[in-house]
C-alpha cells in the first residue's frame, strides 16, 4: 500500500513536478519576504519576464518539432535596432510592420535551411547567431540606436503603457501565450508539430509535410522574437546592438525547465510559461533577499540540472543513470 502511494506520488511528481516545484518555491520565498507575493512585485516580475517569455513560447514550437533555435537572442537585437531606426525614418506605424517583415524573413531563411534542406539546426542557428549579429552591426554601423523624440511618440505604449491597470507587456505576453498555446494544443498544425518532433519518419509516412511544419515553427519563433523586440524597443526607446545577447540560452533554459525534451515531441506552452515565471521569480526573489543578480546564474544552473535530471529519472525509474 505504501509502495503504491509512493509510486503514485512519483508519477505525479514526474508529470507535474514543475508545478510542484513552482509552488514550493513561491511559498518559500513568500515566507522569507512578505513583499514577494504583493501585486506590485508580481506585476514587476511578469513584466520583466515578458520579453523572455514571448521568445520562449516561440522557441517551444521549434523544440517540440525536434530542433533548436540559438539565434533568437541576436535576432531580437536585430528587431529592436531595426524598429528603433525605422521609427524615426518612416514613423512607428510603418516601422512596426516593416520590422516584423524583416524578422520573419530571417526566420523563413532558417526554416528553409533546417526544414527543407534538412541541415542540423544546432549548427545552422549557431551560424545565424553570428550572422544576424553581424547584420545588426552592419545595419546600425555599430552605433547605439535612439529615438530622437522620446516624449512625443505613442510607440512607448508597448513597453511602458498600461491597459485596465495591467502593464501592456504583460497583456501581450498573456495574449501571445494564450493564442499560441491554443494553436499548439488544439489545431491540426499543433498536432503535426508534435508528430514531426516525436517521430519525423512516421509523420512523413502519415502524409504530413515535415519540411513545411518545421519551416512554420521557425516562422512562429521569429514572429515571437519580433514581438519581443518591439516590447524591448518600446520600453527603452533606445538600444545597444547587443541587447539580446545571451538571451537564447535563457530562453532555452526556460523551455527545458518547462519540461520540453530536446529530442522533440513533448512540452506545452503552459509549462514553458511556468518555466519562464520560475526563472523570473528566482531572479526577483534573490534580489529581494539582497543577493546580487549573478547568484541567480548559479541557482538557475542547479535548478535546470535538477529539473531535467528528475524528469528523466522518473522516466527511467532510477535516480542514477545506467552509464557504466
Amino acid at each position: 500500500m505504501a509502495a503504491m502511494n509512493r509510486k503514485d506520488l512519483g508519477e505525479f511528481l514526474a508529470k507535474q513536478g514543475i508545478l510542484v516545484a513552482f509552488a514550493v518555491f513561491m511559498i518559500a520565498f513568500t515566507m522569507a519576504n512578505q513583499k514577494f507575493i504583493s501585486i506590485d512585485n508580481v506585476f514587476s516580475v511578469v513584466r520583466s519576464s515578458a520579453i523572455l517569455g514571448i521568445m520562449a513560447v516561440g522557441v517551444t514550437f521549434v523544440v517540440i518539432s525536434g530542433n533548436l533555435d540559438l539565434s533568437v537572442g541576436s535576432m531580437m537585437s536585430f528587431s529592436t535596432i531595426v524598429v528603433l531606426d525605422l521609427h524615426d525614418k518612416v514613423g512607428p506605424a510603418l516601422a512596426i510592420p516593416l520590422m516584423f517583415l524583416m524578422t520573419l524573413c530571417l526566420g523563413a531563411f532558417i526554416g528553409f535551411l533546417v526544414g527543407y534542406l534538412r541541415l542540423n539546426s544546432l549548427i545552422v542557428t549557431l551560424g545565424m547567431l553570428s550572422a544576424i549579429h553581424g547584420l545588426t552591426l552592419t545595419y546600425s554601423g555599430g552605433q547605439n540606436m535612439d529615438i530622437a523624440d522620446k516624449e512625443g511618440t505613442w510607440f512607448s505604449v508597448f513597453g511602458q503603457g498600461t491597459a485596465l491597470g495591467i502593464p501592456v507587456p504583460i497583456l501581450m505576453f498573456l495574449a501571445v501565450a494564450a493564442f499560441l498555446g491554443l494553436v499548439l494544443a488544439r489545431t491540426p498544425f499543433g498536432r503535426k508539430v508534435y508528430a514531426v518532433g516525436g517521430n519525423g519518419t512516421a509523420a512523413t509516412f502519415s502524409g504530413i509535410r515535415r519540411a513545411r511544419t518545421v519551416f512554420t515553427c521557425y516562422l512562429i519563433s521569429s514572429g515571437c522574437v519580433a514581438t519581443a523586440g518591439l516590447i524591448q524597443a518600446s520600453r527603452s526607446l533606445g538600444s545597444q546592438n547587443t541587447v539580446g545577447q545571451g538571451l537564447e540560452l535563457e530562453v532555452l533554459a526556460a523551455v527545458i525547465l518547462g519540461g520540453a525534451s530536446l529530442l522533440g515531441g513533448s512540452g506545452t506552452i503552459f509549462k514553458t510559461v511556468i518555466g519562464v515565471l520560475i526563472l523570473g521569480f528566482i531572479q526577483n526573489g534573490l534580489l529581494l533577499m539582497g543577493l546580487q543578480f549573478y547568484v541567480q546564474f548559479v541557482v538557475t544552473w542547479i535548478i535546470i540540472i535538477l529539473a531535467v535530471w528528475l524528469d528523466i529519472a522518473a522516466k527511467r525509474g532510477k535516480l542514477w543513470s545506467s552509464i557504466a
Binding site: P188, R191, A195, A202, F205
Partner: peptide, 20 residues
C-alpha cells in the same frame, strides 16, 4: 519507426493522416 509516433496517444496516432 514508420508507423507510429510512440510518445503520442492512441487516438492522435490513429487520426494523424486526416487531422487537417
Amino acid at each position: 519507426g514508420q508507423g507510429l509516433v510512440l510518445g503520442m496517444n492512441c487516438r492522435d496516432n490513429m487520426t494523424l493522416p486526416q487531422v487537417d
